[in-house]
């Protein structure tokens, strides 16, 4: 990697180079989780897999939704739907910072010309009952990634510790590609037969979802959906582990966690609709956290979560 690569020419090329880079470093390249989440961390490949003692290494793009950030596609860098690139490696390797800097080089950020800095930024997710220490990484004064050593997830101490890297792809790509407005950024190669900008792909959906999130989403139904997801999550976790049909021990940690994700997204929508008061807000966050903790408790009782049956201990 001694010679500097040519600069990427499109949003998707940056994604493809990150995929190739982290694949070359041994990560399993996963696909986005098929549910609405607020950030890449919510993907079970990070939240659940950072628990327990089993080694893990994965990288993936995660479409993320933040209903309150919708600006009808007009703000140069605020979107209600955007992409995060997520890398999670357990245990965190000793050269994780160097690996990360290598990934910047792969997408055209040459550390010889730029000023790259690790600035204190501790991470905490009250909804996931999780926290870690790390930095936001600055390139010439701009935050390009979050770098976190997970200490606790779902109320459980992480041992071993996972290293998590999160790249905000639109912002990073705008910087590399020199775009001033996210919608003007080339999505595919500008010399392709059908060149598409980010706006060609997402301008209309940003409008539609902004209207939906702020004004149209049915709050009564959402409130009901929240309660249902919450109840379903608890109900799935209350089912005894021994499955009478197969005779196997099957704890439904992932299906339960899906309900936790659902509750979290519904809460975000309700928040965007402005129907949650300041006092209620904390209570809702507390309820989602209760679900996340229960799912984490269940996951560590599974094989993937590092559980070893007593007979083999």
């Amino acid at each position: 990697m001694s010679q500097t690569l040519e600069k990427p020419r499109s949003f998707q090329e940056i994604i493809l180079r990150l995929q190739a880079y982290w694949a070359s470093k041994g990560c399993a390249i996963l696909q986005p989780y098929d549910m609405e989440v607020g950030a890449g961390t919510f993907h079970p490949a990070t939240t659940l897999r950072s628990l327990g003692s089993n080694p893990w290494a994965a990288a993936y793009v995660q479409p993320s939704r933040r209903p309150t950030d919708g600006r009808y596609g007009e703000n140069p860098n605020r979107l209600q739907h955007y992409y995060q690139y997520q890398v999670v490696i357990k245990p965190s390797p000793p050269d994780l910072q160097e690996l990360y800097l290598g990934s910047l080089k792969a997408i055209g950020i040459d550390a010889d010309l730029h000023d790259i800095r690790f600035v204190e930024d501790d991470w905490e997710s009250p909804t996931l009952g999780a926290w870690g220490l790390g930095w936001e990484v600055w390139c010439d004064g701009m935050e390009v990634s979050q770098f976190t050593y997970f200490q606790q997830v779902g109320g459980h101490d992480c041992a071993p510790v996972s290293g998590e890297l999160t790249y905000g792809l639109e912002r990073l790509a705008m910087y590399i590609l020199g775009a001033d407005h996210v919608m003007d950024m080339p999505f595919n190669d500008p010399s392709a037969p059908t060149p598409l900008t980010y706006g060609d792909v997402f301008k209309q959906t940003e409008e539609e979802y902004a209207r939906h999130n702020f004004d149209a989403a049915n709050t009564e139904k959402l409130l009901k959906n929240f309660e249902e997801a919450e109840a379903e999550c608890h109900a799935l976790l209350d089912v005894p582990a021994d499955d009478p049909k197969t005779g196997k021990r099957i704890i439904m940690a992932h299906p339960a966690y899906d309900q936790c994700i659902k509750a979290s997204h519904i809460f975000n929508l309700l928040d965007a609709r402005g129907v949650i008061s300041v006092t209620e807000r904390q209570a809702y966050i507390g309820r989602v956290r209760t679900l996340a903790k229960a799912c984490a408790d269940a996951f560590v009782q599974t094989k993937a979560g590092g559980y070893v049956p007593e007979a083999t201990q």
């Binding site: 245990p91 965190s92 390797p93 790390g134 200490q151 992480c158 041992a159 071993p160 510790v161």
Partner: peptide, 18 residues
């Protein structure tokens, strides 16, 4: 004021000690 573990170790330091 705040310290952390990293990798598989149990030692605590402000960020990984090399």
């Amino acid at each position: 004021p705040k310290s952390m573990r990293w990798g598989t170790g149990s030692l605590k330091w402000v960020r990984p000690l090399h």
